[in-house]
Design a protein around this nucleic acid. Structure first.
Lengths: 252, 252
DNA sequence: GAGTGGTCTAGACCACGCC
DNA sequence: GCGTGGTCTAGACCACTCA
């Protein structure tokens, strides 16, 4: 008995959810219009809208103004978060495209911008910078099968990154960690923080989020051999399509 | 300019959010009733309700049917997720109460139930059990300052846990990992998985969640010296009040 | 311009918490 | 019983997409 719903809009949501789970409506396919559903269920469109919004917040459907609601691709993307750590000896550090390809997606990447700026206070704090110090910011969008699924913004102290490939508007081979190693940086440790929050309007636009959807913000700070922070990377990803995993030994 | 809103309900939400951020309404305090706000802003109550719901989904306020909406405690709880790992030599493994106390909360724990059951398929898979094998399930609720903030359900192969303190309805000193060590289990590694999803109705009730709020599900699998899974623990926590952190060396 | 979602108002009735 | 949210309907108008 999946039925334990009270309100009509929840019942409608339950039935639509079940239809999606059964595969009656395939990912990419459009849901019937709200008017159609209203007639079908004998309810007012307002009620239907509330039901569809619920599914949108859950990440099941994608509502687009003027175009209708489509069923989202459900398969999650799994991030082996400490992949850059587990690869011993610095041999082959994990990259976006290969990580994603292994899971059956086509992984691409878009460098949105590379700029020198004054960092947000939080980043400045993590990098241990003074108020007037600047950073190089690399803003990238990671895509899976052409759909934006993650934003990755990396910050480097300008004193370190200026004049290097980090400050150039081009993709970097092997990811940012590998690029830093090419610059002679040796890593000692990483600090990671994961939290969930509401996206900013900009993030919602870049990731194509429906109203009510949340994001996972995954921040990584990399420390060099002298234990000084050399990189802060902020990953913002859709909460429902991304899973993070860790493999840890019992003792470090 | 925080103003970039279009719809009225978003504007109302923005103003309420700002009021909360400014501290005009303190955590624990009640928001004006929807009727009051409707009169104040010259809008219909339906519109106000939509605004408050938005804040509830963000975790800023707590809507209670018949009682009103209150501002939530905002301070997040930080989980040093690999705390049981970093404590070398098995000396002092982290516990809920001390972890929480260090952050200025009063940490308590409630053992909801301890039972022998047939595990859900996913757990059976992680533990490598056959269909007919049973598990001991320990269901606990972790509270911070008396408020439920995390559910922790641990599963053990019945063959391992039956007849031990793991199968008894009582709190265990030092947490489940320490209890397993007392049973002679030695650990080799841990696998962790983090994802975000919509709570079940039961979880929403146990955690006192408002409509639209999401949860973080953090699953940990512990492997013994022979690399056999001995414990699966499922942590379900409110998405907005919990932060997970990791400290990792550059090479394992 | 037709189709689809986004929002708003007006008004009503119900359900829950509490005195 | 009163106050507060929860939900629903009816109806309207707006905004975006696409032919």
């Amino acid at each position: 008995m999946t039925e334990g719903s009270f309100s009509r809009y929840r019942q409608v949501a339950d039935r639509l959810r079940a239809a999606i789970a059964r595969g009656d409506v395939q990912p990419g396919q459009q849901l019937p219009s709200e008017d159609t559903l209203a007639a079908e269920y004998g309810l007012h469109r307002t009620t239907i809208n509330k039901a569809v919004r619920l599914l949108a917040a859950e990440g099941l459907v994608d509502m687009e103004h003027g175009r209708g609601s489509r069923v989202r691709e459900q398969r999650p993307l799994i991030h082996t978060s400490a992949s850059y750590v587990t690869s011993a000896g610095g041999a082959e550090r994990a990259q976006w495209s290969s990580e994603v390809q292994r899971q059956g997606f086509t992984g691409t990447q878009d460098v949105r911008s590379v700029e020198v700026e004054t960092p947000p206070a939080e980043v400045a704090g993590l990098l241990g910078l003074d108020d007037d110090e600047q950073v190089v910011v690399r803003r990238r969008t990671m895509l899976a099968d052409g759909e934006p699924i993650q934003l990755a913004d990396s910050y480097y102290p300008a004193s370190l990154a200026n004049g290097t490939e980090l400050a150039e508007h081009a993709r970097m081979a092997g990811g940012t960690i590998a690029a830093l190693e090419r610059l002679g940086v040796r890593f000692r440790r990483f600090h990671e923080r994961i939290r969930v929050r509401v996206p900013t309007r900009e993030e919602a636009g870049l990731l194509g989020l429906s109203p009510g959807q949340q994001v996972i913000q995954y921040t990584r700070v990399a420390y060099d051999a002298e234990d000084r922070p050399v990189e802060v990377t902020d990953h913002v990803m859709t909460a429902d399509r991304n899973v993070l995993t860790y493999d840890l030994p019992a003792f470090l």
